[in-house]
Every structure is written in C-alpha cells, then in structure tokens.
Write a protein that binds this DNA or RNA. Structure first.
Lengths: 246, 246
DNA sequence: AACGTCTTAATGTCCTGACAAACTATTGAC
DNA sequence: GTCAATAGTTTGTCAGGACATTAAGACGTT
C-alpha cells in the first residue's frame, strides 16, 4: 500500500502543471516525506491519481531526474535517489545572496568607480580599449572575519550601479533590474599567492595561498556582460559541487 | 531561404530518433555548418522535413538546449547560441583519460597497496573501520613536469586493481570493467599549502600554494564507490567550467 | 518619428494513444 | 534445486492533435 502522491494541483495557476508536480515531489523529498530508496507509483497510476496525462507526469519526473533527485529504470520504476544531490552550483550563486539572515556572509564595498578599460579588461569584456567600465571591489566577510575580495567589471552602458542598490539587492539584483539577463558563464578556479594588499585585507600573511575564481558572464545574445575576479581565504572557503553522470 | 536540416535519420538504428537528430544538429554546430546566431526552422516545419512528430523534434532540441548549444524563445524561434559552451566538466573527466596522444598528461603509479581503513577513510567510504581498501597514489605529469598528485581509495571488494590495468585503461576503465557504475560525485575544490613530501614530488617549495580537489563518487544505489584527494600545481592547472542559467 | 493596435509566427503546455525494450516474477520441465 | 520460457510490470519512444502564451512585425494614427 503506497502513499498518495504528495501533490495538490492548481489548474488556475500560471505555473505549469508539470512544474507544480515536480516542485511538490521535490518538497516531499526535502521534507523527508519521501525517503532515499522509496519508489514512486508507476507513471500510468500517478497520472490517473493526479488527473494528468502521462507525458505531463513524465515531464515533471524528468525535471527531478535532471536534478539528480530521482532515478528511473525501465521495467523497474522510479525511485528516490540515494545520497541526495546538494544544490548544484548555479549561475546566481556566483553573486552575493543578501539573504540577511543570521550571521551569513555580507559584503562591504571597497570601491565603485568608473574607469576606462585597459587592454586586459577590454579583451575580457570585448570592448574597445578606453571604453568606460564600472570597477567594483568588495570585501566579503563572515562575522568580522574577511573571507574574500570580489572584483567585478561591467560596462557602464549596460547597467547603472550605485552603492545603495548594491547594498540592498546585490550585483545580480542590479543587473536583473537593468534587464541584463545572463544565460551562461565561464569560470576558472585556481590558486595563487596573496599579494601584499590582498594579504592585508584578508588578514593573511603575504604569499599565503588564495583560492581564485575568474568568471566571464554572457547574455542571451552572446555578449559579455560581466567579468569578475574573486580571491578567497582557503581556510574559510571551498567550492562544492555535484557532478551527475550524463 | 534556409538550409535543409543537416539530418539523415536511420529508423533501423537502435539509437532513438530524437537522439540522432540532436547528435547531427550538434555536429553541424561543431563543424560550423550552423553558426552562432543562426535560427533553425520552426518546429512544425522541421518535423515535416524530417518526417517526424513535433514532440520528437522538440525532444531533440531540448537536449541541445540543456547542453547550452541552442536557445528557444516563444514567438521568436530556436537559435544557435552565441558563445558556445565548452565541454562541461563531467564525471569521467575527473579520472585520467589515457588518450596517449602527443604530449598529453600521463600518470606514474607511486603506490598501489591494500590497507585497512582508518577512521577518516572509513567515514569517507562508509565502511567499517579496518575494512580493506585499495590505496592508489599516482603522480601526474605533463612531459617531464609534475602536475598533480592523485590519491584514490576504493573498497577491495568492489573492484580489483592492478598496475597493469591502471596503466592501460585508467582508474575509470578499471571500474567500468568491474561493472561499477557511478551516477554522481560530490567534489570540493580548495587550496592549501604543500606539505614537504608533496613539494618534493611536485618540484615546488614547501608551503607553496596547491589547488586541491576532494571527491566522493556514488553508484546508482547511493553507495560510496570511490574517495579521492588530488593536489595540483596551480601554475599548471585550473578547473574550468561553464555554468548555465536554469 | 513615436505610439498603439492587430495580425502573424513560433514555442509552451497538455492531451490521447500505441508499441518497444528492459527488468522482475512466476511457472514448468528436468 | 536449477534453468529456460513466459507473463507481467514499468519506463522509453514515437505519433498526432489542440489550445495558450509570448514575441515580433505591419500598419494606421498622431
């Protein structure tokens, strides 16, 4: 005897039905109502219970399969994955999430100025040399401990920045408000020694190892909208990610 | 006037039709027959030209959208993405690819022994303390330059390892031959100072920064099948990845 | 030239239906 | 008890269809 599917559908909602189903199954997994190893009802039975078509149910399940939360096997069924995937590294997580709860990370703006692009920046941002850019530099802290130095450069003709907006909505929020959409970003994670300035800002010794992350973000038209270079104290930070077999 | 779709379907093939379509579109993008910014025929017309149903064509397109090669927009159409995604970091790329071509990286086995699991390893591999493990340590080189020290631990009851097999097919190949399938892996990328031993092996100064990567791989049943800890010379290596907007 | 409206184009969502393939369980023969 | 064959279960693939929503272009008016 299996549980009814933990789903209540709202056909009046603008949220697609397949998405509602996926979200509620995901919530059931996260909440512990569905446990690793649990098997779902077969697709035809699920569709019948939910009053949906089988393709719609399959589409919902596929979303969770893509997220690594469910696994399907022909002739066997659909099962909640053992060892749940933690939230994968996503585009927006590259920007500071000013959730403001508890003792989470926060950022202090060190500098926000307009500069002409030098050769390196004009190459990274695909602009003409001398093109005007925002140069944003922030110190990221956990409590009173410095965690990272975040440097970002953006074209001034794409987005307007102010210290006030950055404090309230973060860089990503400012870009979204300027209707700058990002569809993909390339990043490289590496390591090097801290410079004297970085060491001082991060309370490290000069020459101490730093974890580095350099990123170029593109919009839907393939234009570079942002270039960033971050350095982190490796004793306080590491990049965690989940890889799925394709 | 648009080009015919670059697709030849083989209905006798065991490869699903949607997959054939996706593969051949992808090939056309990679080969330059389709350029960034190019728009595909609309779905209905594509389906007609290919003699397929629209859902089948949509499934093929969705594969390439998920790979970040195509982008769709309601009311507008489907377009080849500007700024193609490079091959994303995948599970198997974590293991050495002994492609043996040119001056690619190669590995020298430093040690392959059976050891009883200590507390840390039994925790990482979810075994009882004392459980027998393979301890594999390799030095990875580019030409004559040491690049990385790769350490991996696996349960001896899951896979058999030999220096011969590792030289010929790599760790991943050995696991595949033992029917060990991995569906996901968690990894953390960080940085720390080199120990004296590591520094000597990597031709670095003691205390030099190293880029580190720790990984736990799981099979389809959620069991830990491998635990690895790699350290890289950051002047010779960085992790590069592409993130897609979800 | 700018703006609003309408039409057209294309994708997004959802449905019904059928058959194939892989996996598991059952049954019968030896 | 073992093995092969068969049946049952479930997902995978594919087809055809309809309506909704979003986006862009054309056209008329100011």
């Amino acid at each position: 005897m299996s549980l009814p599917p933990p789903v209540i559908l709202d056909r009046a909602s603008p949220v697609p039905l397949y998405f509602q189903v996926a979200e509620q199954f995901e919530q059931a997994i996260v909440d512990g109502k569905l446990h690793p190893g649990d098997r779902l009802e077969n697709e035809i039975e699920l569709a019948r219970q939910l009053g949906l078509s089988r393709p719609t149910v399959r589409q919902a399940i596929q979303l969770l399969v893509d997220k690594g939360m469910l696994v399907r096997k022909r002739g066997v069924g659909t099962q909640v994955v053992h060892g749940q995937v933690r939230r994968p590294l996503e585009l927006t997580s590259l920007f500071d999430d000013l959730s403001g709860t508890g003792q989470g990370p926060r950022s202090r703006i060190l500098r926000l100025t307009r500069i002409p692009a030098d050769a390196k920046l004009s190459h990274a941002l695909r602009t003409a040399p001398g093109h005007e850019l925002w140069a944003l530099e922030r110190l990221r802290l956990i409590g009173d401990d410095p965690l990272a130095i975040l440097r970002n450069w953006l074209r001034t003709d794409i987005v307007d920045l102010s210290a006030f907006d950055l404090e309230n909505e973060g860089l990503y929020g400012s870009m979204r408000r300027a209707n700058v959409s990002m569809s993909l970003a390339r990043q490289r994670i590496g390591s090097r020694r801290a410079t004297a300035d970085e060491a001082e800002l991060l309370n490290e010794e000069p020459g101490a190892p730093l974890l580095t992350m350099e990123r170029t973000a593109y919009d839907n038209e393939g234009r570079v909208v942002e270039f960033g270079h971050h350095v982190y104290r490796p004793d306080l930070y590491e990049f965690e990610m989940t890889l799925l077999q394709k």
